[in-house]
Amino acid sequence: MQSLLEITDVHKTYRIGPAVVPVLTGANLSVAEGEFVAITGASGSGKSTLLHIAGALDRADTGTVSFKGQALNRMSSGQRHVMRNRSFGFVFQLYHLLPELNVLENVMLPAMVAAPTWMALVRARPRKRQALALLEEFGLVERLHHRPGQLSGGERQRVAIARALINEPAVLLADEPTGNLDPKTGQTILDVLLRLHKDKGQTIILVTHDAQIAALADRTVRLLDGRVQVASQG
């Protein structure tokens, strides 16, 4: 399979006060188009950092990250914003929905960011149609005008997934998406992700510390001491 995302020899350190903490020390990862990869590892092993670097949300100190052959780390800040908006969709453990917006508005927001100002009104209708279709797919049609505070955890996470998918990203990056949910609700979220992967061939990179969840993926990689140590086929 052709490689969609290629992470090669990535290093990343964080400065905490006077101390320099190495998080990634030469991580390598290759993700093919349509693949479902789970990244596991202990707390603080650098799973989220790797995910952020893969999705152009963070920069690696050294090493290369290339997406469809384009080196993300050589891109300008503006190009990375566009890349993040159009090619990657993030789902976070704490949902990270904007509390002032309702469900529909939260889902439409990345599409609004994507539209240039002069096209905003022209694209408003198709954008809304698309958002409604996604929300219908995730069973949230009844909740369109509810604010995040009025939703359950599972509903919030489904809204976050719909938001991540509105711009039809090449890669969905999920950082412990079930970490804040009870097992039953967590399972519904995993079902959504699996359906996306199987039915639509969505490329997914999922960060989890749960081996059972990781087992659902096509492939699992394990981060240890800042490196991808183990790779297993799901």
């Binding site: 949300l57 800040s77 503006g78 914003h81 566009v82 993040r84 908006n85 159009r86 993030f90 976070f92 990270h96 929905l97 904007l98 509390p99 927001l109 990345p110 960011v113 994507a114 938001r163």
Partner: peptide, 13 residues
């Protein structure tokens, strides 16, 4: 946190 979210979905500086 909202600022982080906006940046994560592609909003620039």
């Amino acid at each position: 946190r909202d600022i982080g979210i906006i940046k994560a979905i592609g909003g620039g500086e």
